[in-house]
Design a protein around this nucleic acid. Structure first.
Length: 576
RNA sequence: GAUUCGUUAGCUCAGCUGGUAGAGCAUUACACUUUUAAUGUACAGGUCCUGGGUUCGAGCCCCAGACGGAUCACCA
């Protein structure tokens, strides 16, 4: 890797600090007794408490004005201005600490500790008057410079925002340093998980952990990631869901279990899909899906209140209100509401005619259940902005859900739809082992017909059901999707710290020792570095005459103080 | 996987009909003891994503590729 000029300069500064006896990465702990947010919030009311403060953070901007300077320092809670004055820091004749260390050897991005007292500047900004500072970490890579200001109305204006998505996702650490909104989004995500966990702890449910490496994958319809265990010499799959394990725990006698689970699905990626994602699954014994709807409403309403202090949340152009109770439709009612067509009594032929009438393209292979799902997906789902429960799904699509207590061909299942997307999925869980086996066998048939997502038959799970699982309500709720809504993020990548991406190409640049091995005189090494070849092989592939010409050109540009080699010498270097 | 847009200085971006590569910020130097996008002056900084092609001449046109975004498809 060729280092840019700022990078070289910072490495040089690191050396100079060492020469001055200043350790750029000290071991001694720097004790902090204040945060930026605390000072800005409480200083005016409790001035005497801020006479002797100690704070650490990253330098985010510098305004040097001769013998006085202002910097902005950023800690985990925010930014605060600090005031450095030469004669305070260097009361004696030796002004090195200010003139050299502070002004020349520190940069934006360096992490320092400061000690001093809080005051208000003439322009009214609460600031720290620094009496002593300590370098804690020298930063060798320049940060993207983002400048912020406020207009007359007090609106925040950002200049030169660090907005390139690829760079932001690949180097999330930089994104987090430079974009405060990103930090806020992830804090909200954490609060969301915390609010849900508190909710379930209060109800007395048990938080559990179940296997991620599974010999059989199940609990959802999806393609898995496959791996291999060497000692056991067996195939294992990364879980696509943890449903079947949590139900085993209900069989075992726990009456409420939940897990925040990373699941893995080997499928397409989009702004709603990442190969690994988080679901919270909850199973409660002696409950049904109607009870579970109330539970979801209460939990999600609680989350909205915890994050926003209100049930109303701005999402894109909509304001979504999570206040209970939410609207409820059966799937048939919802389709009738949005298309005007009652499909509840239709057979497959009738449903196909409806698809044709609504201009929905469907493959001939689809059965009745999938046709209904297609109509719902095309005509209804995207229009449901406010949180809405859709209940009573066709049995063909739900091999783990209990048959409806009153309606033939349906199961006791609901999804909550919000902002046009599913956020959760729940059933009265199927606990009849004979029925469950039959449903698995239907799935196996589907698999034989080529459906890559058909479920596998899990004999151990069936054995557990045969011992008897009490009537149970189960829920899976997508934490990423819910986070997107609660933080007004248009893409799943905005709520994942490290979204999946293709790896960056790794370039192994030739080094000085490579040049030496090729017999190139040292004076020419900078020239080869400047040419930035990707590898030694790349250099050797260049025609000697072309390289000879290039060397001549760069010799002039870089002012190389060495005689021009002959064409024959160049050929020797290249082994040609 | 398909379509489409993008990739130019450390960062954010301009770049005309194909004719010597531009700005602001950051950096460097100097000035400046309460500034706040600090200011003023000066300097420096570029494989224009990669590889081919067309052309006297390519950042720009053509072909292929890499990476990324968006939409669609797939997908609880």
């Amino acid at each position: 890797m060729q280092l840019s000029e700022p990078e070289l300069r910072r490495r040089q500064e690191r050396e100079e600090l060492l020469h001055l006896g200043i350790e750029p990465y000290p071991a001694a702990q720097f004790t902090v007794n204040a945060t930026a947010a605390d000072i800005l919030k409480n200083y005016e009311r409790r001035k005497t408490d801020y006479k002797n403060i100690s704070l650490a953070g990253r330098i985010m901007s510098r305004r040097i004005m001769g013998n006085a300077s202002f910097i902005e320092i950023q800690d985990a809670t925010g930014r605060i201005q600090a005031y450095f004055r030469r004669d305070d820091l260097c009361p004696d004749d030796d002004k090195t600490l200010y003139n050299t260390v502070f002004k020349k050897l520190l940069d934006i991005g360096d992490i320092i500790g400061i000690q001093g007292f809080v005051f208000t500047t003439q322009t009214g900004e609460i600031s720290i008057h620094v009496q002593k500072f300590t370098l804690l970490t020298k930063s060798l890579k320049p940060l993207p410079i983002v400048k912020e200001a406020e207009d007359e109305q007090g609106n925040k204006i950002t200049y030169d925002a660090f907005a390139d998505r690829e760079a932001r996702y690949r180097q999330r650490y930089v994104d987090l340093i430079v974009n405060p909104d990103v930090r806020e989004t992830f804090k909200k995500r954490s609060q969301l998980v915390q609010a849900m966990r508190n909710f379930m702890q209060e109800k007395g449910y048990l938080e559990v952990e179940t296997p991620i490496l599974q010999p059989l994958y199940g609990g959802a319809a999806a393609r898995p990631f496959k791996t291999h265990h060497n000692t056991l010499d067996m195939t294992l799959y990364l879980r696509i869901a943890n449903e079947l394990y949590l139900k085993r725990l209900i069989v075992g006698g726990f009456e409420g279990v939940y897990e925040f689970a990373k699941d893995f699905r080997n499928e397409g990626m989009s702004r709603f899909h990442n190969p690994e994602f988080t679901q919270m699954e909850l199973y409660v014994a002696y409950k049904d899906y109607i009870w579970m709807m109330e539970c979801v409403e209460e939990m999600v309403e609680r989350v909205a209140l915890a994050l926003h202090g209100t049930t109303e949340v701005q999402v894109g152009e909509h304001i979504i209100n999570f206040q209970r109770p939410w609207k409820r439709y059966t799937m048939f009612e919802a389709i009738q509401e949005y298309t005007g067509i009652d499909i509840s009594a239709m057979d497959e032929g009738g449903l196909r005619a409806v698809c044709a009438q609504l201009n929905i393209d469907v493959p001939d292979t689809l059965g009745k259940g999938k046709l209904i799902d297609e109509i719902f997906g095309e005509m209804v789902e995207g229009k449901l902005i406010q949180p809405t429960f859709i209940t009573d799904y066709p049995v063909e699509m739900s091999p783990l859900a209990k048959k409806h207590r009153g309606k033939e061909g349906l199961v006791e299942r609901f999804e909550a739809i919000c902002n046009g997307k599913e956020i959760c999925n729940a059933y009265s869980e199927l606990n009849d082992p004979i029925d469950q086996r039959a449903r698995f066998e239907e799935q196996i048939d589907l698999g034989k017909r080529g459906d890559p997502e058909a479920m596998m038959l899990d004999e151990d799970f069936l054995r557990a059901l045969e011992y008897g699982m009490p009537p149970t309500a189960g829920l899976g709720i997508g934490i990423d999707r819910l986070s997107m809504i609660m933080t007004n993020s248009p893409s799943i990548q905005d709520v994942l710290f490290f979204p999946q991406m293709k790896p960056e190409p790794i370039v192994v640049a030739p080094s000085d020792s490579d040049y030496e091995a090729m017999g190139i005189p040292k004076a020419w090494w900078p020239v080869f570095n400047k040419m930035n070849h990707k590898s030694v092989e790349d250099i050797k592939a260049i025609a000697a005459s072309k390289l000879f010409n290039d060397l001549g050109g760069l010799r002039k540009k870089l002012k190389v103080d060495a005689p021009m080699p002959t064409l024959d010498e160049v050929k020797t270097w290249l082994g040609q």
